[in-house]
Design a protein around this nucleic acid. Sequence first.
DNA 1: TACTTGGGTTCTATTTTAGAACCCAGCCTA
DNA 2: TAGGCTGGGTTCTAAAATAGAACCCAAGTA
Lengths: 152, 152
Amino acid sequence: MKKLEPRDLSRDQCPVMKTISTVGDRWILLILRECFLGFKRFDDFHDNLGVSTSVLSIKLNTMIDRGLLYRKQYRNEGRRSRFEYRLTGMGWDLIKVVIALMEWGNEHLIKKGEPTLDILERGTGQDTKLQLINEEGGRTDWYELKLRVIEK
Amino acid sequence: MKKLEPRDLSRDQCPVMKTISTVGDRWILLILRECFLGFKRFDDFHDNLGVSTSVLSIKLNTMIDRGLLYRKQYRNEGRRSRFEYRLTGMGWDLIKVVIALMEWGNEHLIKKGEPTLDILERGTGQDTKLQLINEEGGRTDWYELKLRVIEK
DNA sequence: TACTTGGGTTCTATTTTAGAACCCAGCCTA
DNA sequence: TAGGCTGGGTTCTAAAATAGAACCCAAGTA
């Protein structure tokens, strides 16, 4: 049994590639950003993203089909019923991706002195940062990584 | 001076949005994956990704223009000169994004028992995982987050 | 019933991609 | 030097996706 190398993984086997084919779409990523900021409604997304209603509708339904979002009907008194789009657990887990995008943007695209978005720890107000952690809880240096094929 | 809320950031000011407009493109994400796996050459990308040469050429040049990659000419003895495409420091920093995509894929898209890709710590062989860390070095719970507008 | 709100759907033009054919350049060898 | 091989595109046509606007259907209320 020949040992599999990372390069040998087919497109079907590579988690990165699989994820990209699920969410690696500009509009889906932007909608995820909206969801993490707390927006929920069709017109919020539409106004914020400047996307056509047809594309927005398709993308929202794609995200529902893929288990990232679910629709919940609600109604305010004296108003017609509406829908909000909420993250599933699976969709919520993409927060790591969104935060990674944010950190990279803050580091490389946002000028010093300009307002920008950041994630703080709720209880303490402390700034946070994504870090790779090993099994003992220690930090792993970004340059000390090894790719491997494993079986979960 | 009215305090800015995260929701008030314009598209130009939001780091997530800015990053998405830089790299939130399926082909660019896939090319990044290739780069992180160590592939460097036009034909590697072409074979692995099943992308047309025209799109690949455009995307590679886009990534060069945006500072994610640079081209380096090289030549093996007895062969014609070729080009390899290497990550810049800026491009390397997107490793957080790629790892986040990988972790999500491993959690939600790869079946148990199937081979998949993982990141280990080089010196110890220990498994690693992305985690949010606060200023004191402690872990921040994924549900204890607060979005804020700051100035870097 | 008419009107307002809300979430699309349809349509046309434009842009991007898919896939194949074609082309140009760098080297080496006969 | 000519021809061949390798390497990285470029061009072209058809298909798919998007942009942007007009249009439409449904849920409520007055």
